[in-house]
Design a protein around this nucleic acid. Structure first.
Lengths: 232, 232
DNA sequence: GATCACTTAAAACAAACGTTTGAATGCATT
DNA sequence: AATGCATTCAAACGTTTGTTTTAAGTGATC
């Protein structure tokens, strides 16, 4: 059983990943996928059952190894820290690097996957959320715990917010990396993975360990330009 | 001319905003919009010409006043600073507050609009990008200039990246504000606009003015836990 | 009261969608 | 050579989609 005819199945997965990433789930038709993959229309339903199951397959195929590597790296970092708090930079790197690495390695659909995962988290497909929560919830728990230890001064609620901002920045950057080149008039290279990683870590580290502001009415009106720490 | 029968047109706009925000452009059918709005199906094409034009109308209706207010507040902040650099916190507030304010004021579709704009920037509709670029490009230019003056130590390319991270964090937070309550087990309130604004500003301020890291090979391998500034 | 522009109404249009069907194909095992 | 099984294929299914058409209604102006 399952000797060797994954050619069709894999071609479908690769093509679907690319097209779902470029156009989204509902804007991509099975006919377009099968045409570009060079396979028969019915083979999707044969191998995956439905379009939605195909979508799940595409997402899980990449997401699971990414999250497994995150946990692995985080565990390593904790062991290396030896009961001491793990530096934020290390925590962030265990979170971001597997995403960027897996997504850009392997078949050409990698960069498309970044858009896909970004899209699905920004705008979840109803039939996907259950699967997604099951995949991500353990991660949230682990990262919350290790971050709490590293940032004991930040209240938990505050930390949750900042983790969300972090994820938002990461996803947006990952999905639009290629576009930055146009927006910045060539200043930002679209394929500079290490550069993107470093900048994300710089930015999010500062954001996560930012001092709590005393917000005594400063934001109450639209004046909002008095006080506040200014860079030197 | 144009005496008073905006009832149908406006009901379409409001309902479309809500449904586009909840389900996205392609998952929302005209029939669903017209049914829930209590108007005839053909009236959409009569008033707007096509589904795509309706979408543009929904987006522009909110986005234009938001961006006008951003420019207005930014100009005020510059005048108040009087040739001095405008504090980052003020810059950020001129950018974020109009979005959150307009989006949650007025008709109930406000919160849906946040999801809508977030979705369209994360995952642009092809027919919309031209309109969007025209709407946003002047903003990028203005904010780039004022940020460059406030953060002279940050290279322009670095600044572009950080602006993207900022936008990503803002959009993600705006779109998921309501979900945070569930994720954080009630710790984060979904309707706390001022709180969200303050936290966003705290986070992004720190990120924007973060010191440049010396990245001498630190990120080359997956070890990645040596060196790096740790919080005190 | 007739004329006009504007708006709504119901019905039909062709096109595209995801899915299903049943026959044809290839290939290992009997 | 014949059987059994997994896979591929072309064709068709019933819906739903955005859009168009044609007719009916509405209210101000002459």
């Amino acid at each position: 059983m399952s000797t060797e005819s994954p050619a069709t199945r894999d071609r479908i997965l690769d093509t679907a990943e690319r097209l779902f990433g470029q156009q989204g789930f509902s804007c991509t038709s099975l006919r377009q996928i099968t045409d570009e993959a060079g396979v028969n229309l019915a083979s999707v339903n044969y191998h995956f059952g439905s379009k939605e199951e195909l979508y799940k397959g595409v997402l899980i195929r990449r997401l699971r190894p990414i999250n497994e590597e995150r946990i692995k790296l985080l565990t390593q970092a904790e062991q290396l820290a030896d009961e001491q708090p793990v530096p934020i930079r290390s925590i962030l790197e265990t979170f971001i690097r597997p995403l960027l690495r897996h997504a850009t390695a392997g078949s050409a659909g990698g960069i498309a996957f970044l858009r896909l995962i970004s899209r699905d988290l920004t705008d979840p497909q109803p039939f996907m959320t259950a699967e997604m929560v099951r995949e991500i919830d353990p991660l949230i728990e682990r990262y919350t715990k290790v971050l709490t230890k590293t940032l004991p001064g930040i209240p938990l609620a505050e930390l949750f917010w900042r983790m969300q901002f972090t994820v938002g920045g990461i996803l947006y950057a990952a999905a639009h990396q290629r576009d930055f080149e146009r927006i910045s008039c060539g200043l930002c290279r679209g394929d500079d993975l290490e550069g993107c990683l470093r900048r994300l870590i710089d930015f999010c580290t500062a954001g996560l360990e930012a001092p709590l502001s005393d917000f005594a009415g400063r934001l109450a009106t639209q004046s909002g330009s008095d006080a506040g720490p200014v860079h030197p």
